[in-house]
Amino acid sequence: MSDNEKAADEGNETITIRIRDQTGEETFFKIKKTTKMQKVFETYASRKGIQSSSIRFMLDGERILPDATPKMLEMDDQDQIDCMLEQTGGRSF
């Protein structure tokens, strides 16, 4: 198998990732390793009925940029992403 074929195979490899929200609820996504996370984030936000910009996605304590891919993030099958809602605040009497 040539190097090009190997790269193509890696690109087509699919993994299942889990997104866990603050309540512990998990949502599963089966994606290619070369899929941009933005697509996952927007799909997740759409399902939850919120804007993707109002959620912060974290992997092992670090924020994930929308342009990143599972391959860039060295994600493996069943890896988990944590999501945190952005909040608004002004007072608390």
């Binding site: 804007q51 910009s53 994930i64 940029l65 929308p66 952005e86 608004t88 605040g89 002004g90």
Partner: peptide, 23 residues
């Protein structure tokens, strides 16, 4: 950390009487 993007809705949180967002 990584660059943070800013949505127009976040900027509108600066209008008088509005609350600021964490982002």
């Amino acid at each position: 950390g990584k660059p943070i993007s800013l949505a127009m809705g976040d900027v509108e949180g600066l209008d008088r009487g509005q609350w600021l967002s964490t982002s």
